[in-house]
Design a protein around this nucleic acid. Structure first.
Length: 265
DNA sequence: ATGGTAGTCGCACTA
């Protein structure tokens, strides 16, 4: 069976439920993983998603900040959320589907402006979060052979995941300490970068453009912060990926666009 | 080198 999974940092799901519905109607993924829903669970727009054909909802919300959710056509067998770095932040959800397939949805901390863990506690938090993910991968690697991890990782790991490798080497999201650490996370579970499986690393590819640019499209100073990784056992079933650049130009857009993967499971 | 925009039960914080 082929399934399609989408991941999208929506930057307030209540404000943007209209473009979520538009996206689901147009693309009809089986599963949508959202980050930065910016709402408590009770205010999550459940009805809109159920009516759009996504009756299975897992929500990890918090007031004002962060928050992740998974909306699915397929039922879940289990739902879990981990408290990473013991911060109490809503940055993670895990669901297992009925066939055993495992899906983790992450919103990794952005890390603030200064790439110094001593001067900047938010950067320290981000590094600790990534280190916990390394240990998590090592723990599960032997037992979880059919797993997918998606989300806003807030790291653009490759040279062509940013508009200028040289200019961004000291900019949080592309510093060597972060890209090396994300490499350790990837190696810890042998994750395959499903998007770069199809788009060669020599080709520029972005999933985020700052709101602060006067003309995001013309300047095109993007970064690839949103990712979909699969275990080696699933990599043989990879069918296609899409990164919906046009969504950045929609009415009242998120600063991130949806990233999608279709695979045989 | 700076400041630019967006969202959230605001008067600050996160991104």
């Amino acid at each position: 069976m082929a399934i399609t999974i989408a991941t999208w940092n929506i930057n307030s799901v209540r404000l943007r439920i209209g473009i979520v519905e538009q996206f689901l109607a147009a693309e009809s993924p089986d599963v949508l993983c959202l980050q930065e829903i910016k709402t408590i669970d009770d205010s999550f727009p459940r009805k809109a998603l159920i009516e759009a054909g996504y009756p299975h909802l897992a929500i990890a919300g918090q007031k004002g900040y962060h928050g992740v959710a998974i909306a699915s056509k397929l039922p879940f067998k289990t739902v879990e959320k981990d408290d990473w770095v013991a911060m109490g932040d809503a940055r993670h959800l895990r669901v297992r589907f009925e066939d055993g397939l495992l899906l983790d949805n992450f919103y990794i901390p952005a890390g603030g402006d200064e790439p110094d863990p001593v001067a900047n506690p938010k950067f320290d938090h981000k590094l600790k979060f990534l280190r916990e993910m390394v240990a998590w991968g090592e723990r599960r690697r032997a037992s979880e052979k059919r797993a997918i991890v998606v989300g806003d990782f807030n790291v653009a790991p490759l040279e062509h995941d940013v508009w200028s490798h040289k200019k961004l080497l000291d900019v949080v999201s592309h510093t060597p300490i972060e890209t090396n650490l994300l490499g350790e996370v990837q190696a810890a579970h042998d994750w395959v970068d499903a998007v770069r499986h199809f788009v060669p690393p020599s080709e520029k590819l972005y999933s985020w453009w700052s709101y602060r640019a006067a003309d995001w499209n013309a300047a095109d100073k993007g970064r690839r912060l949103d990712h979909i990784w699969v275990t080696p056992d699933l990599a043989g079933g990879l069918v296609s990926t899409r990164t919906l650049r046009e969504a950045r130009g929609w009415e009242k857009p998120s600063d991130h666009v949806p990233v999608m993967l279709t695979l045989e499971v």
